[in-house]
Amino acid sequence: MLIGIPKEIKNNEYRIGMTPAGVRELVSHGHHVMVQRDGGTAIGLLNDHYEAAGASLVDTPEEIFATAEMIIKVKEPQPEECKMLRPGQLLFTYLHLAPDPEQTRLLLESDCVAIAYETVTDAQGGLPLLAPMSEVAGRMSVQAGAHALEKAQGGMGILLGGVPGVAPAKVTVIGGGVVGINAARMAMGLGADVTILDRSLPRLKALDEQYGPQLKTLYSSVESIEHEVTQSDLVIGAVLIPGAAAPKLVTREMLKKMKNGSVLVDVAIDQGGCFETSRATTHQDPTYEVEGIIHYCVANMPGGVARTSTFALTNATLPFALALANKGYQQALIDDPHLRNGLNVHRGKVTYQAVATALGYDCLAPEQAVG
């Protein structure tokens, strides 16, 4: 199979869909890989590294989209990339379609086959291609929140861990999944007073057993969210419903009861955000203020640590990329129901129910699409 790795073009996005090691693996299985020149240079993955691994370097994305059978990316295709996709061409990347009607429309119009990293599952019910970026984003959320709390950044001027004689910051994490756990770990490591909310009692029990009294756990309800948010210095939104738009759990009215200069970090922004007042921002201009509260809503947060993120992501995606290349996408999806769960768009049809529900499309069952 001819596989193309274009350079990412989203604002301040320096990750790349495959490392030289991944290229070497695919080439060793008899596949051909094209990599856009300088696609990984910003994170130390040089053109020479890709050539030594067996890749062909090309100068423009147009060359890749015009000829590759499978496109492997990191972020969702931008409108100009969607318009280069060809009928039947396979796209393997993050999509986050539920809150993005324009991208969905363009993918449907392209007649391509699009598999989303974020809805591929595993035997334990997890999301193995989302997990590594969730780990990064969870850890970064505390780093970003701590910075935003500094007075020069618009925050109230609080050190997350405090100092002897001065209380630490109060941090509330909404959601006890991969993002939430990693955020809580980082915040506890910095000495903050941390509470995590979730609707799963087994998850709260597991967290209590793992961390003991260092981490407070609360069942998530409208009342408990409002109480904790209004008392907090830093709130991290870490809620995920796979493939679906994130629920709006923190309202503008709650913001009015918070302390001026408090900070909200919305890690769910890729799926539309879990704060009513959230709107996507970039690493170039990461924060804005609503009701005196600083919002950090960067939609590609792991892109800020692009080298770490690239290696973490491609370690997870490579086995699936190999299966798609070795078998062809139809056989690979037939053989692996967990990879099949990643199929979001197939030849002009939406094939993921949560996306169809969010955007008002009919849903074609993925089994029918590839059967």
Rank of each mutant, 00 (worst) to 15 (best):
L45M: 11
A280Y: 00
L207Q: 11
T308W: 00
D122W: 00
H227C: 13
A21L: 12
Q36P: 04
P87S: 02
I236N: 08
G138E: 06
L91T: 02
M258D: 09
Q103N: 15
L46S: 08
R279Q: 15
Q231C: 10
S220A: 15
G273S: 05
G39Q: 02
A53G: 05
P302I: 01
H283T: 08
L318W: 02
L318A: 03
G39K: 03
L190W: 14
P242H: 03
V370S: 08
Q271R: 10
L218S: 14
T121M: 05
P319C: 09
T351S: 14
L364C: 14
G237N: 10
G304I: 06
V290P: 03
D59C: 01
E76S: 14
V74F: 05
V35P: 01
V355E: 12
L215D: 11
T282P: 04
T104N: 12
D100I: 03
G261I: 00
E223G: 14
M18V: 08
P168A: 04
P366F: 07
G4R: 04
L45F: 03
E367M: 11
G292W: 02
I236D: 03
V290N: 03
G237C: 06
R279C: 10
I269A: 05
T119L: 02
G180K: 06
Q271N: 07
T60V: 03
S224A: 11
V173D: 09
G44C: 07
P99H: 01
V136Y: 00
V33H: 04
L207Y: 07
G126F: 00
L240F: 01
S221V: 02
L2I: 08
L197D: 06
T67W: 11
N182S: 07
T357P: 00
A306L: 08
A354Q: 15
T351R: 13
V194A: 05
I293Q: 13
A316N: 02
L149N: 09
K259H: 13
M18H: 09
Q353N: 12
G17I: 01
I5E: 08
E289N: 13
L322K: 10
G176C: 06
Q89A: 08
L91Y: 11
Q368S: 13
E228K: 15
V23E: 01
L234I: 10
P213D: 15
I334S: 13
G237Y: 03
A52L: 05
R37W: 06
V163M: 12
T93S: 15
G212Q: 09
T310M: 04
A246G: 09
A146Q: 14
E291N: 14
G4D: 11
K259R: 15
A42D: 13
D336P: 07
T281M: 07
A169Q: 05
A268E: 10
I158E: 06
S141G: 10
G292M: 09
D362S: 15
L197Y: 10
S221P: 12
Y219P: 01
I9C: 06
L255S: 12
L90G: 08
T281H: 02
A332P: 11
M254A: 11
L108N: 10
V179W: 09
A325Y: 02
L343W: 00
A53W: 00
K349G: 04
L343P: 00
I5T: 09
V166I: 13
R185D: 13
D48M: 00
E150C: 08
V355D: 13
I196T: 14
Q36Y: 07
E80Y: 14
G304T: 03
L26R: 13
C112S: 15
N341G: 12
L215E: 11
G272T: 02
G154N: 06
K205N: 14
R347T: 07
I158T: 10
